[in-house]
Each structure stands twice: as structure tokens, then as C-alpha cells.
């Protein structure tokens, strides 16, 4: 009897609510870079990671990129973004969100984010963002996974950060881009969850921005060796 009543209750629940079939939620964390950099500049920890939760239609992403210098014990860069991704084509999502920069000893900046993220032909992973504020900038990232074997993967990446207005406090001048080129050789140790890697990371600040960087007494052309983990779970 008890069983029957309980079944009826559930039955009633099904009749009364629930859309056709609820969208399922998924989540995940991916750190493309989680590494120690050592070379011509000051040694630093760096990361570039996304954590997401959402459905096929909407994905909320927390993105964090940072460099923590171990000489100064301070964040040289610290960017956090909250992004909403919505599919706009088979392979691309539109992105809207906010970005908040809070490096130690630097100005706090808040931007609106508009962008595209997806998979271009020939397997290039592309991120193109426009950061809107009184100091607007654009950023373009491409990454490619080259399979040496199915476990040993060479990942070249290029990131171009292009200030669209002068922001001297952050050492950036309009149309003086910062270029980051990396090559990382990883090994999938545990599924795809943990993949240790070694690699090279090259940062070059160009144009007027380069002059600003040099004026600060820093190098506008820095090569680092990196060692770290790719993480996905």
C-alpha cells in the first residue's frame, strides 16, 4: 500500500511539472597552463585555466590567467573573467562577460568582454576577444595540438594582445602589441586528467608598448623555459 501511494505521488509529480526533458548540466575544469617559468625574466608561476558549468545552450566559464613572480612575491598579472558562451555556429560560441584585472602594484581594471571561441578548420583552437573599457584592447589566441603519439602531444600556441588605447599605468600603448609564443611538449600521464609538460615560452612586447616596458627597466623580449601540468577533470 505504501508503495502504491509513493508511486502515485511521483506519478503526480511527473504529470504536473518538468519540461519536455530538462537540459542537462555539465561542468569541467581545464588548465592549459599550470607552470613554473624560469629564464631571462624573473622566475614565476603562471596559469591559464577555465572552469565551466552549463548546458548545450549556455555555458558559464570562469577564466583565470596569472603570473606570480617569486622574486617580488607578487602577481605580475592577474586576470579573472566571468564569461557566458552561447553557440552561434557548428564550431563557434559567442562570448560575453566581464574581466577584472587585479595585479599587485598595478591598477585595477574592469572590462566588458565580447568574443568568439571555437574550433577553426584544420583543428586550430581559436579565442578572439574584445575587451571594452576606457582602455580597450583585443586579444587573439590560437592553439594547436600536434600528436606525436596519442599520448605525447606538442602544443604550439600564439597569443597576441593588442591595446587599442594608451594605458601607461599598465605599460601598454595603443597598437603596441604583446606577443606570446609557446611550445609545450606534454605526456598524458593519467587519462587526459594530468599531463606533465616541458616547453618554451617567449614574450615579446612590440611598438610603443615595448618602449614603456623598457622604461620600467624590464625586458621587452623574454624567453623562459617552462615546466608544468595540463589538467582536465
Amino acid at each position: 500500500m505504501k508503495i502504491r501511494i509513493a508511486s502515485l505521488a511521483v506519478f503526480a509529480a511527473i504529470l504536473s511539472d518538468s519540461p519536455a526533458s530538462a537540459e542537462q548540466w555539465f561542468w569541467g575544469v581545464q588548465a592549459e597552463q599550470l607552470e613554473w617559468r624560469s629564464g631571462e625574466g624573473s622566475p614565476a608561476y603562471a596559469w591559464d585555466l577555465d572552469a565551466f558549468a552549463g548546458t548545450d545552450e549556455y555555458k558559464f566559464v570562469v577564466r583565470s590567467e596569472a603570473e606570480y613572480g617569486t622574486n617580488a612575491n607578487a602577481f605580475e598579472t592577474l586576470e579573472n573573467q566571468l564569461r557566458l558562451q552561447v553557440p552561434v555556429s557548428t564550431f563557434f560560441d559567442a562570448v560575453a562577460g566581464v574581466r577584472y584585472d587585479s595585479p599587485d602594484g598595478g591598477p585595477r581594471r574592469t572590462y566588458g568582454v565580447l568574443g568568439l571561441k571555437g574550433l577553426a578548420k584544420q583543428w586550430f583552437e581559436v579565442d578572439a576577444d574584445l575587451y571594452l573599457s576606457e582602455y580597450p584592447s583585443a586579444r587573439f589566441e590560437i592553439e594547436y595540438e600536434g600528436l606525436i603519439t596519442n599520448q605525447i602531444i606538442f602544443t604550439p600556441s600564439i597569443e597576441l594582445d593588442l591595446p587599442l588605447a594608451d594605458d601607461e599605468a599598465t605599460g601598454r600603448a595603443a597598437f603596441g602589441p604583446k606577443l606570446e609564443i609557446g611550445g609545450r611538449l606534454s605526456y598524458d600521464l593519467l587519462d587526459r586528467a594530468i599531463a606533465p609538460y616541458v616547453g618554451v615560452h617567449w614574450e615579446r612586447t612590440l611598438g610603443e608598448s615595448g618602449r614603456l616596458v623598457r622604461d620600467e627597466g624590464e625586458d621587452d623580449d623574454v624567453v623562459s623555459f617552462v615546466v608544468g601540468f595540463r589538467v582536465m577533470f
Partner: peptide, 8 residues
């Protein structure tokens, strides 16, 4: 598995 496939 489903979550992993959705992620990658």
C-alpha cells in the same frame, strides 16, 4: 564519461 565527452 558523458561529462568528459561534452568537455572534449
Amino acid at each position: 564519461i558523458m561529462r568528459n565527452l561534452k568537455m572534449m
